[in-house]
């Protein structure tokens, strides 16, 4: 693979491996578009591809791929800077595209750097309170000497606030499109999102929240005010939306049942159905971020 391999994004993981339409990925249907000449003006009626069980199974498959922890790509980015030299990419730990040749630069190590990044790290101690975190964003691609690469377009953010009374609040955001070909988890498969999360651990207990969208490996979900609080026994409230390959979204409403299950509705379902989904890989990872 060429070290300057932004084009490879086109054929990589998330960007090519969906469930819907995967039967036409070989280009077969390209030979005869609209062969059946369906009535183009007929009302659109979604034919669900997945059953309710399959929807929740796919959601569980997605969360099993790992929580989109902003620290992961940020650490990977910093590690790749070990391959830099005195002139490539440029000074500091950020990429400044205007100061590099068109198409990026090639370091003596064989690593290739291109794009722009911005990093803001925070480490504030005021009295007994401490605020630590980072913002990391841009659009970049770095390949190591072996040709494996990390690419990102968007922003990552994470922050913890520790008070002298023992309270800890942490929050973060994973937004944009990110890929690290050296991994085989959510980041390795390619990840697209506009996802925010937070946690609070206080004398009143612990609360975790997730909002926004996540897409990995052909599975697309949206968290709508999903929260885990001690009052609900650690089970979620809020809504989890799951995209059927037909393109229609199903809504799993956890309501206040506090048992990990909810009511699944879908435009083409005549009746609502009950469904349960195990999101514990996400909640465990999010809880662990309390440690910063």
């Amino acid at each position: 693979m060429s070290p300057s391999c932004r084009a490879a994004l086109a054929s990589f993981g998330l960007l090519s491996a969906g469930c819907a339409g995967s039967d036409r990925a070989d280009g077969d249907s390209a030979a005869a578009p609209g062969e059946d000449d369906v009535d183009q003006l007929a009302p659109f009626v979604a034919e669900p591809v997945w059953s309710a069980d399959e929807m929740t199974a796919e959601a569980e498959r997605l969360v099993a791929l790992g929580f989109p922890d902003p620290n992961v790509p940020f650490d990977a980015y910093k590690a790749l800077f070990a391959y830099r030299d005195d002139t490539c990419p440029n000074a500091g730990d950020q990429l400044v595209g205007q100061e590099m040749p068109e198409g990026g630069c090639l370091a003596a190590s064989g690593a290739h750097f291109e794009g722009n990044t911005v990093i803001i790290e925070t480490n504030i101690v005021e009295g007994a309170d401490a605020i630590r975190g980072f913002q990391f964003g841009g659009d970049f691609l770095i390949s190591d000497p072996s040709g494996a690469w990390l690419a990102g377009g968007g922003g990552m953010r994470f922050q913890t606030v520790r008070s002298n009374n023992g309270d800890v609040i942490w929050s973060g955001e994973a937004a944009g499109t990110w890929i690290d070909t050296r991994r085989d988890d959510w980041l390795g498969l390619g990840f697209s999102s506009t996802f925010t999360f937070g946690g609070a651990s206080t004398a009143d207990g612990r609360t975790l929240t997730m909002n926004g969208t996540v897409g990995v490996d052909g599975v697309y979900v949206q968290f709508v005010d999903v929260a885990w609080a001690d009052a609900c026994g650690g089970y979620p409230t809020g809504h989890l939306r799951i995209r059927d390959p037909s393109g229609v979204w199903a809504d799993l409403d956890f309501a206040d049942r506090c048992d990990g299950c909810g009511t699944l509705t879908h435009d083409t379902l005549d009746d609502a159905t009950e469904a349960c989904v195990d999101l514990s890989p996400f909640t465990s990872a999010l809880a662990a971020l309390e440690a910063g």
């Binding site: 994004l9 659009d139 377009g153 968007g154 944009g176 990110w178």
Partner: peptide, 8 residues
Amino acid sequence: FRQNSPTE
């Protein structure tokens, strides 16, 4: 999410 981003 980010303008001018080929990745996006």
